[in-house]
Write a protein that binds this DNA or RNA. Structure first.
Lengths: 216, 216
DNA sequence: GTTATTGGATACCGTCACTATCCAAGCGCT
DNA sequence: AGCGCTTGGATAGTGACGGTATCCAATAAC
């Protein structure tokens, strides 16, 4: 497959593909001459992954680059690789660590995780991410109830996560494992988010007694 | 409160506050003279809302503008207002409606919602949003199982949404209702998302038999 | 009267994800 | 061999977005 064909099949313009190649998101094609290179199914698949992470997950190109780098470095053990990929999904949280309000929120997060008995690194960026949101909620007068959080975490998220992780093929080739993990995290994350918003609309309509739309 | 004080208390730079005023995200202060205006708690609160939606929810400024406009237009009935706010939370999905693969995904979404008996407008952007994600999942060979989706939707999302909607004070002033709805949708959405990713890490560590970190 | 601040208008900036343009080197067809 | 078209590679430009920076005349406060 030449680049023009790759572009046609994927729907991604050639200059954009070149850009991804430059940024290292997409591996180089197999050179068959000074001005010719051959692309295969891996490239098509990778391209679809990139687009999904960009458009659905709204991940920055740099983060996708990190994920890809972790996959391609054969030295990295699998669990480190999964960690890298996973952490690249957290947007960098810029908060003054000396901020008191933030510190309190962060402590609540640590307590929550410890209380659940979950095995999560101290330095996980997700801890800060969650603390950040809890802080905002407090500032807006809608602080989250700690027991409620714990309840949702154990009855819902724990099960969901365990189920999803079970689907990741750990024994196959490493890039399959990461791709599976990342796709699961990002795309199913979106699925849950949208389902929740759809459910909101329905609940709202019911609550306000809005008559259902007649069938078109 | 003058603008400098508003800036100091909120941590938002003065030029940025001016920018929000220009864009209509923040209502004008009460003019007490040609070169003086007074800001109150409403402004501080609104400012925090804006920052939360921007930084946590990553909503575009234009979307926040729409939400604010819906609140401020007293003509709009409450359920319309909630709808506007809610729909502003969906990023515009640009997909060729003639695309066959997409059409199939969209049908699955409609079937799912009908099957659940949920009351959701035909034109809801969330339907397209979900269809889009399902399509991507298919393209990546990780198509969602329809029964599984239905299961999660009814046992988890339905309950969560009904619970959260119950917290929105419908009888108070309208802007309180919208703010509550929006904050709930966006910030708790993030809470769930992050909790899920944290749970993932824990599940992954367990699955791979990574020893827990010693306490620091 | 002097100094500092304000509201308001306008122009500019940095990041990000592309796009556009060029170019020389082939490839393939005649 | 001649010729047009595509390719890889390099470099520069673009448009959207969320701010910043600068200026200004009109005051308010001392």
């Amino acid at each position: 497959m030449r680049i023009s064909e790759l572009s046609a099949t994927s729907g991604v313009p050639i200059p954009t593909i070149k850009y991804y190649l430059r940024e290292g998101l997409l591996p180089q094609g197999e050179h068959t001459g000074a001005t010719r290179a051959e692309y295969g199914d891996t490239h098509l698949r990778r391209l679809r992954l990139i687009r999904a992470l960009l458009e659905v997950g709204r991940l920055p190109v740099a983060a996708i680059g990190k994920i890809v780098a972790a996959v391609e470095d054969e030295e990295t053990p699998v669990h480190r690789m999964l960690g890298t990929a996973h952490y690249a999904l957290s947007p960098p949280v810029e908060t003054d660590p000396a901020d008191e309000v933030y510190g309190a929120a962060r402590e609540r997060v640590d307590r929550l995780i410890d209380g659940l008995g979950w095995q999560v690194t101290r330095g996980a960026p997700t801890r800060d991410e969650l603390a950040q949101v809890l802080m905002r909620l407090e500032q807006l007068g809608r602080a989250a109830d700690e027991d409620e959080l714990r309840h949702y975490a154990e009855t819902v998220m724990g099960l969901v996560a365990a189920y999803e992780m079970g689907k990741v093929p750990m024994d196959g080739p490493r890039e399959v494992a990461v791709e599976s993990l990342v796709v699961g995290t990002v795309l199913y994350g979106k699925v849950f988010d949208v389902l929740r918003r759809i459910a909101h609309e329905s609940a709202s309509a019911r609550l306000l007694g809005i008559p259902p739309e007649p069938d078109a």
